[in-house]
Each structure stands twice: as C-alpha cells, then as structure tokens.
Design a protein around this nucleic acid. Structure first.
Lengths: 352, 352
DNA sequence: TGTTAGCACTCTCACTCATCGAGTGCTAAT
DNA sequence: ATTAGCACTCGATGAGTGAGAGTGCTAACA
C-alpha cells in the first residue's frame, strides 16, 4: 500500500480538514486551503483514486469525501505530525495533577478526570489488578472487643479492608502474632495464590490456643481470597455532546449505554496491546466491541518499575485529534508512573 | 386549595394517564378510559377550571392538558394511591442486594445500582460524611521498614488508609504504643475535631524517645485531618433515554452534564429534608438547582441507630411514577439500614 | 501525458404550502 | 347542571421546490 507523495499530501489534507470541521471535504476546499499548487479538478481525480483504494468514502454522490477507517489508519501510521504538548499545556496538566492523593486508586481516578478535561473526550482508567499483585503486608488490627479490621497491602500500593468478628477472648497481642505469621508465610505471594495454610504449617509458631486463633486465620485468608476485580473509572462522558457525530439521540444513547456497563469498559481497556511505551490506537472497526465501531480508542499502560499494572485510555469519534490526544495520554501516563513510585516510596506527604 | 371530589378524580385520571403515556391528555380520553360517568364536554369544563386554578397546563391551544408542577404536587400529597411492592418485586430487590460487601461504601454503591435498575430512573447515593463521624479506632500498622499504614475506622463503618514514611528506627512495638495513645486520646471524637495533641498531653504515657515518635504522631494526625468529603455515587444515567422528554439532545445533554458534576450531586442530595422516615419529593421548580427544574427528585435518608448518616435518591422527569418509586426508595432505605447494622455488628461473613 | 476548465448531473438541505386530526371553547338544547 | 354539536386553532406530516455543494466526465491545453 504505497502512496505517491501527492496522494499522501492530499489524504493528509483531507483528514486534517475533516478532523477540524466534521464536514465532508470537497476538492475545492483542499485546493483553496492547502497550498498544493493544484487545481480542484486534479485533486478531484486523486480523490477518486484514493476512494477506490479505500482510504476515503463518500457519504453520498454529491458530497465531499470523508476518511475511511483505513484512511485514518494510514494517517495515524504515516502522515500525522506528532504534536508535542506546549509548555502551557504541560503546566496545565501538572497543575491539575497536583491534588494530593493518599492511594493509587485515587491517583488513577484523578488522572482519568484530568485526561478527559484536557483532551475534551471521554476517558477511562483501570486500577491495578489486585489479584495479580503481590502481598506486601497483611495486618489484623483491633477495632473494639470482638471486632477486628483486616488490612491487606499489595506491592502495587492498593489497600483493602475487611471488618471481621472475632472471639471476645482474643487480645491485641494475639492479633499481632497472627499478623506476623501470615506475613512471614505469604509476603510476596500473588493475592490469587494465597490459600488457607494447613494446620501443620502453622506448627508451633504460635503458642496461643489453636482453636481460638484458627477461626481468625481462616477469616483473614477468606478476606484475602475475596478481594475483587480492579476498579474502572470513566470521566467526561458528556464531552461527546460536543461532537456532531453524536448529535442524534440514538448515537449518543448507544455510546453512553455501552460505557455505562463496567464490564464493557474492562473489556475495552484490557484489549489494549501490552506495549509498554507507546499509545495503542484502535480505529473504528478495529475495535472488538461492536457498539463502538464508530469510535476510536487510544490506550496506554502504566507501570510499576518494569511491570505493567494498569491501563488508561481515551475514546471519541474516529474523527479524533490523534496527534494532540496521543501526546496527552503519553504525558499523563508518564506522570502516573512517576506518581506511583513517589506514592510507594515516599508515602504520603503530610502538612503538619 | 380545596377541590371538590369530581375535580380530584379528574385530576387524578389526567396525571395517571399522562404519567403513563407522556402525551397531553384530552377530555375524550378521560371520558373513555376512566369510568367517571361524565361526557367529554363536562370533563372539558372541569379541565378548564383546573387549568385556571393552576393544576394543569396546555402546551398549545389545540392539545390536551398536562399536569403543572402544582398539579403533581397535589397528586403526590392527596391523590396518588400508595403502591406497595409486590412480593416478586421485593424478592427481586432482596436478590439484587445479596451481593457480599465488605464496607459501607460498597453497600451504598450497590444500593444505588439496584435502585436505578429497579426504578428505571437515575439514582444517586452519598456515603456517610466521615468528618462528622466519630473515631472508633486509629491504628498505625507496619508495612515494611520505614513505611507504615495509617488506618482510621469510624463509628459509621467507613475506613480510610494512608501510607506514610516513618523513621527506619521505629519498630512495630513503637507503632502499637502510638496507636494506643491516639486511641485513648481520641476515641469517640468527631473526625473533624481531632487536633494535634500538645506535647504535654502526650506526657509520660510513652517511654520511647519523643523526637522519634513525635513526627509519627504528627503525620497520623495530619492524615486524619485530611480525610475528605463523602463520596457520591450515581447510576443509571442512561435510563433517561427511555423517557420521551429527553429525546432531544439539548435536554439530555443538560441533564447528563448537570449530573456529571459531583458537586451538583452533593448539593442535590444534601438539599433533602432531614426527615427520618419518609421520602422527600421535590417536583420541578421546587428544586433548587435550575438545571433540573424539569425533573423530580425523590430522596430519603439512611441511618445508623437514630442518627441520619447519609441519603439516597432518584431523579427523573416530573412525569414520574411516584407511587412505585416512593415505595422502592423506602424499601431500599430500610434495607440499607439493616445491612449497615449487620455490617457493623457482625462484621463480614466469610466463606471458609 | 498530466493538468485544467467547463458543464451537466446528483443529492441533500431548507423552505413553503396544503392537509389532517386531535382537541378545544362556546352555544344552544335537554 | 349536563351534553351534543360545531367552528376554530394549532402542531405534525408530507409533498414539492429551489439553492448549493460537489462530483464525474469530456475536451482543451501545456
């Protein structure tokens, strides 16, 4: 699929123009707006060629052309000019991200919000998958007589709590012993791999009556086992109303209903390639989900060290400002990576 | 504002019919559908009266009538027939609420989801306000050398975590002492009232070097202080597309955009009367927020013991199925109250 | 041979106009 | 007090029309 230079320039002009105006682009428009030194008739011929090759489409005979998915694909892969964020844009993002957060979930949520505000499209993000994360610490802390709180911390910085009922006769010291034992046994296990330790395993490590502590241990492990799926955030869904392709209710409804289903979101976000350092672009029919076959989906992943732990993305009409959005996602992704390390290494900054 | 019996019946018939069909109701329709034993002409006269009194409106001269906000108000206060949930409906709700949750936030979120599914409108709910809640326990638990997790539990069952950095020389035992001290000092304080304890206060309760523990205490109190506002959940926003009043994009957009702003939601939910046991109904212009002057808002509160700790509600077109929705909210509210007590008293049920 | 001017043709969009039907308000009869 | 009858109003619907944008094709041109 090689295009000669003139066709490339014309295709680029058409895509750029259409992204800008949302109106089918005619040959005259191209001839006028872009200095290609060609008459509209010539461009018309080239456009007919491009259409035949599948890069352009005509909504109806007497309308201009619009890019096909294939056209957008070529544009994204070969034509579009990467647009670095301006200093001011960077400043805006930095400022918006300055909010203090106390855990990763909040960070991801914030990033999603910022991303939708900033790109003017709809954004999504998913928190790290706890089941795949490694156990960093588990602690059973007393709340009041007969009740305790199980706190589970993972290497990805996610924290989960469960309130459990325990025997009244158990005192703080016992809980500490239980905690210590579990930590010794399961530190760095993947959450999903943690199983009830056998009685033999617990051996003589604990000198407290087994019949009292056993239920506690069972409950704690039970809590760990029922840690659930990652959370998905979505933001700026109403941004789509800014785009004429969603001016009719049926379209808007389909879009919104699809994104209302958290399951769909997970599907969408997890379908992204695991490529560590770039933004993945799915255009129109390249998407798996039928309902968003008129949308483009731009996703990226964020990591802890070298391990990908979650992803985020932007969805909007195929007529999307790819260069700008790609740069934005990239920047925000990097920002998340930084903040995650900070959060995990430095803990929370506190005003005193 | 007293209406004679016949006017009441006619008004009731009109509201019922309009709620059902979303079409302006004509005199003939009423005469036919409802067995009032009156001719359309008579009804016509009565309708003219009702309009003059402000209970009805006419979209245009040759259309039927629709209820005004005042008409709905009268309907809600005096005419509508309370509709108890059927056994099957109750079963459905119970079933949907059976999901196991580990904390109040999840419970409220679940309830909101169930409510929107069940009423077919948009639902909202707010978690208990942590700042107003009382501290039940605070615990600093070790995560790894140099890092600890601050866990704060309130009487309303909300839990909050903060990861902090601590001096490497601090060991578990120190943290326990700090925890104990803070618990002794601040148990049953409202979160928002907790202040840095004076050095004198800490007195000789702790025998560990003060210059090491002081920063920890400062950080912990710092964490408590920055506990944030309650969370708001919203569900089923796309349900509005089922209602013809939102068939035009501008209306749908306004509705969705308004509810997209979490601040608005808080405003909406907190504007509810604090009436402990009934569902508050705000019809159209009775709402404070201009953007939802064409919607009705039904809210209720949930409680811990006798104290109201949060609220939930349903929003939809003024043409809402009041009887059904009111019963549903009421039922779900009660269900929440029950589940909260269960959660707090019994802790989490665990499969072993 | 590639480019361009010219022109007939197509198709959508916005507008107008006439018609239809639901529902009203009024009047007069019961 | 109620009702039948009727003229009237007004929005919705659909057909018809002209303007405008854009195309494809042909023939002329460099």
């Amino acid at each position: 699929m090689i295009l000669d230079n003139r066709k490339r320039r014309i295709l680029q002009a058409i895509v750029d123009d259409y992204i800008d105006t949302a109106e089918p682009v005619g040959s005259r428009t191209i001839a006028r707006k872009h200095e290609l030194g060609l008459s509209s008739a010539t461009i018309r011929n080239e456009m007919a060629d491009l259409e035949e090759m599948g890069y352009l489409e005509q909504p109806h005979t007497s309308a201009g052309r619009i890019p096909s998915d294939k056209g957008y694909r070529y544009y994204v892969d070969e034509l579009m000019q990467v647009k670095e964020l301006t200093e001011e844009e960077i400043r805006n993002i930095e400022q918006a991200m300055e909010v203090r957060v106390s855990e990763i979930g909040q960070l991801i949520k914030l990033a999603s919000t910022v991303m939708s505000r900033f790109t003017k499209y709809t954004s999504m993000a998913v928190t790290p998958n706890m089941k795949k994360s490694l156990l960093k610490a588990v602690q059973v802390v007393p709340v009041e007589t007969g009740k305790a709180l199980v706190v589970v911390v993972t290497n990805t910085g996610m924290v989960k709590n469960f309130l459990i009922k325990i025997s009244d006769s158990i005192v703080s010291e016992d809980l500490i012993k239980v905690s210590n034992m579990l930590n010794d046994k399961f530190a760095n296990f993947a959450i999903e791999d943690i199983k009830q330790p056998s009685i033999k395993d617990m051996g003589n490590e604990i000198e407290v009556p087994r019949d009292i502590l056993l239920p506690v241990i069972e409950k704690v492990v039970g809590c760990i086992k029922q840690i659930d799926a990652p959370e998905v955030f979505i933001d700026g869904v109403t941004n789509i109303f800014n785009y004429p392709e969603f001016r009719n209710v049926a379209k808007a409804r389909e879009f919104l209903s699809t994104l209302d289903e958290k399951e769909n979101l997970s599907k969408i976000l997890s379908s992204t390639g695991q490529n560590n350092n770039s933004v993945s672009v799915r255009i129109g029919t390249e998407n798996i989900l039928d309902e968003i076959k008129e949308c483009s989906l731009l996703t990226a992943t964020y990591s802890l060290g070298n391990v990908v732990i979650g992803s985020l993305g932007v969805i909007g009409p195929t007529r999307m400002e790819y260069p700008r959005v790609i740069s934005s996602i990239n920047y925000i992704r990097k920002k998340i990576n930084e903040e995650i390390s900070k959060l995990l290494e430095e803990g929370l900054e506190i005003d005193t």
